[in-house]
Every structure is written in C-alpha cells, then in structure tokens.
Design a protein around this nucleic acid. Structure first.
Lengths: 159, 159
DNA sequence: TTCCTTGCAAACGATTTGCATTGGA
DNA sequence: TCCAATGCAAATCGTTTGCAAGGAA
C-alpha cells in the first residue's frame, strides 16, 4: 500500500510536532512566535510544499511579506523547514523530513500542484540502492536524493 | 559499466548535433546565429548544466548578458535547451535530453558542481518502473522524472 | 531590562523587456 | 530586402536587509 499526503493524515500528531519545533527553536535561541506558528500550521495542513505568495495569501494579511520571508528564513535556519525551487525558480517551502518522513514529489504539469508521496518501504529501499550504486560508480558518496515525478494528476488527466 | 559525462565523450558527434539544432531552429523560424552557436558549444563541452553567469564568463564578453538571456530563452523555446533550478534558485541550463540522452544529476554539496550521470539501461528501466508504480498508485500518469543525487565528489571526499 | 521579533521601506540580484540599430538568409 | 537578432538601459519580480518600534522572558 502506498501512503501519500502524509502530513494531512498525521494532524492528530500535530501537537507533538509543535512541541518538537518549539524545542528546536529554543535550541537555536529563537522564540516560537505567532507568525512562526501560523506558518508551521499552514505547511502542516498543506498536501505539498508552498511558495511564499501562497502562504501570504493563506495567512490573509496576518503576516506581511517581509516578515513572512524572515520567518521562513529562521525556520529553515533551524532545520525545521526545507526549501526547494520549482521549474520557475520560485522557492517552495515544506516541513523538513525529520518531521514529515522522507518523501518525494509528484508534480502535475497541468495544474502545477505538487504533492508529497512516500513510497512503500521496499520501493524506497530499492531506490536508495540504485542511488548508491550510481553515485559510487561515479566516485561520489551519496548523502541524499530527490526524486521528482512529473505527470498529470487524476483531475487533469480526465480533462 | 556506467557512463557519465556523456556530452564530453560525444564531441565527435558535435557536427551532427549542430545540424539537428539548426534544423530545429529553422522549424520555429529562428536563425542559428553566432551567439546561439557559442552558447550551444559551451554547453556541449560542459560536463553538466551551467548558470547564465558561468556562460557569460566562459564567453568572455562575446555575448552581453541581456542577449545571453534572450539566446537561452529562444533555445529553450525551441526545445533545444532545458532549464532547471538549483538549490539557490538560480537557473541552470543544459542541452535537452533528445540531444544528450536521458540522464540524472550528481550534485556535490561540497563544491556545488553538478555532473550528468547516465545509469546503465537496466538500472534506468528499474527506476522507470518504480516511478510509474508510485505515480499510478497516486492517480497520476507519469510523463517524466528527475533524480538528483546529492553527495560529495571524489575530490571533496578526500579533503 | 535585554534581546528577539516585527513592519515598513529601500536595496538587491537574477531575469525580462522596450526600443532603436544591426545583421543574416 | 525584410524580418529576426542585438545591445543598451530601464523595468520586473522574488527575495533580502537597514532601521526604528514593539514584545516576550
């Protein structure tokens, strides 16, 4: 069985996640402020990474853009968020994998939505095996990998 | 056996590649100008994708920045180049896969160099299988995939 | 009280575009 | 010849930062 949309199905654990995040912030001498809670919550409830503009709109004026960017920067510096860049170069933000679990991304070329996918453990093990094989053969020591799958989501396929 | 650095080992075919590119440009009503030849050559000789600033420097004043960007845009519009975005959001450019063959990227977290890797066919087939499996299970129809392997290259590992 | 955080406005850097000029088929 | 391509300067856009004001421990 394949799990996807991990975070949305884990909201019952959001208080535990919140506690972990508070601790991590304290570790780097930062506070768990209102804006930071709002951003973490929005990302926790999202099925995939979000860009700053989306967050800004979702938080409807609660957090001005510059503060939002600073919030994202602090959370990333604390290792709570991860940043990546979509095909247009705009930064996408999501909770780090130590909070969500390791996962990959399905990118719909139709509507642009990005969705998390967690392969079943056996599949992920195979992928890791190939990644190590490829890296080793090229003289690299692999530390991480990112698999983006492009395609059309169910809704866009039926259009 | 693993092949990597595909393009550098294929320079003997660069005249054929050049012809294909000229044809493709003609198809979209564009000319194969000096600047476009220079950019294509630089990318053909590179072991991996390049950012605009690198190209600008490599072409040492031969092509002003704005023209370089327009050149990249035209070549991408014609399907000759592909664009992706590194961890800092800066666009990286490379020849499209119909010219280079399908490949993935090894990203060195030490020196930032990005190198092409072409897995052996059996490995690539397995990867495609997993990609389809994962996409299908989530209701997507996979059309493409991108695998970025992060790690440390031989030089950085020994440092 | 002491820092951390906020919000506004201004600065930045990568990329794009208007416009007059140049150049290639 | 004629339309595409060029190059400069100015404009965009996402993102970052200086600085003074506000807030939590």
């Amino acid at each position: 069985m394949l799990l996807y949309g991990v975070m949305t199905s884990c909201t019952r654990r959001s208080d535990e996640t919140t506690r972990l995040i508070g601790t991590r912030l304290a570790d780097v001498g930062a506070r768990f402020t209102r804006a930071r809670r709002l951003v973490v919550r929005a990302l926790t409830e999202s099925p995939g990474p979000m860009i700053a503009a989306d967050l800004h709109e979702t938080l409807r004026g609660e957090v001005p853009l510059s503060s939002l960017y600073r919030t994202l920067s602090v959370l990333e510096g604390a290792g709570i968020l991860a940043r990546e860049h979509g095909s247009n170069g705009v930064a996408r933000h999501e909770l780090a994998e130590w909070l969500t679990g390791h996962h990959h991304h399905l990118v719909c070329t139709g509507c642009g939505v990005v969705q998390d996918v967690t392969p079943e453990p056996a599949v992920e093990r195979e992928i890791v095996g190939f990644v190590d094989h490829i890296a080793t053969a090229a003289g690299y020591r692999a530390t991480d990998h990112r698999l983006d799958i492009e395609g059309t989501c169910a809704a866009c396929t039926s259009k």
